[in-house]
Amino acid sequence: MSAKSIAIHAESVSAELNGNAILCEVSAQIPRGAWTSIVGPNGAGKSSLLKALAGLLEHRGSIHLLGQLANTIPRRERARCLSWLGQSQTTPEDLRVWDVVMLGRLPHQAWLAAPDAKDHAAVERALHATQAWEWRERSLGQLSGGERQRVLLARALAVEADIFLMDEPLANLDPPHQADWMSLVRQLVVQGKTVISVLHEISFALQADYLLIMQQGQLYHQGACDEVSSHQALREVFDHRIAIHTVQGQWIALPQ
């Protein structure tokens, strides 16, 4: 891949937690303008890798974002180019939905400045995109788990970043809204955005463009979702307890 076609380049990324290795010399080139899913068994290091890419986990090795060494990019600039949706994010229960999503605009605002017309327009677009517009005046504490997840997704969208990192974005979403999430990701890719998601749902992950398959803190395989080698690697890391099939032109994983 040429440098311009790479969104994130990780080189020899390693990390520990409580003295235990959780990432071991992970090197990967993640394509720009595509959807890449990180998959693997429980404890494989999927979320740890995503946090390292986001700068949320102390690590060794180097990470380049859009051609720049990540730790040399000013924090505000980095927050504008990289949007994060994590697991179990804590947000005050009494905050209005509108205000929660407006938090995504902070990297674009001067210190203590009031939101401007661009900020309001971005928040409105994000709320409509996640079908959360009707709750904009409600507090976060009044929402169900699935509704809250859609609001947090809207906050991530409001950043209008080039790269979106999403850790278990389908959590608490019912099947129709899981399908909506996939449609939204495809729209982002069409716009030239890069989406990197950690997913437990292998059948959903197989709808991405590329896979990063993790095992025991290491990158086991990287490749396109429709490649035979990717399917074989998936079967191997899950101890041959899944089978990959195609149904109506889409790849799915079934237990066996």
Rank of each mutant, 00 (worst) to 15 (best):
R32Y: 11
L219M: 05
W35Q: 15
A7G: 10
G43W: 03
H177Y: 15
H177P: 00
L23Q: 13
K193I: 05
D239Q: 11
G217H: 05
A52F: 08
L112G: 02
H231V: 02
E58F: 04
H120G: 00
R80E: 06
E124Q: 15
A243M: 11
G217F: 06
N71E: 14
A54H: 01
M214R: 01
I30N: 13
D162V: 07
L50E: 07
G146L: 08
N18V: 05
G104E: 00
H221G: 01
G86H: 09
E25R: 14
I8S: 05
V185L: 08
K51Q: 12
G33D: 14
T90I: 13
G19R: 09
K193V: 03
V190W: 12
M102L: 15
L103F: 05
A10E: 06
L65T: 02
H9I: 00
L152C: 06
R105L: 02
W35L: 13
G45T: 07
A126I: 14
Q216N: 14
L49V: 04
Q149P: 07
S27R: 12
E93K: 11
V198H: 01
S48I: 07
H9G: 04
P169I: 10
L219K: 00
W98N: 00
Q215K: 15
Q191Y: 04
H245A: 12
T130M: 10
I6L: 13
S62Q: 15
T130Y: 09
D119L: 08
P169T: 08
L152P: 03
K118F: 08
R138N: 07
I38W: 12
V97E: 11
E77G: 04
K46T: 09
A179C: 02
L53F: 05
Q232R: 15
W111N: 04
E58T: 13
G217Q: 03
F204A: 14
I244S: 13
P74F: 11
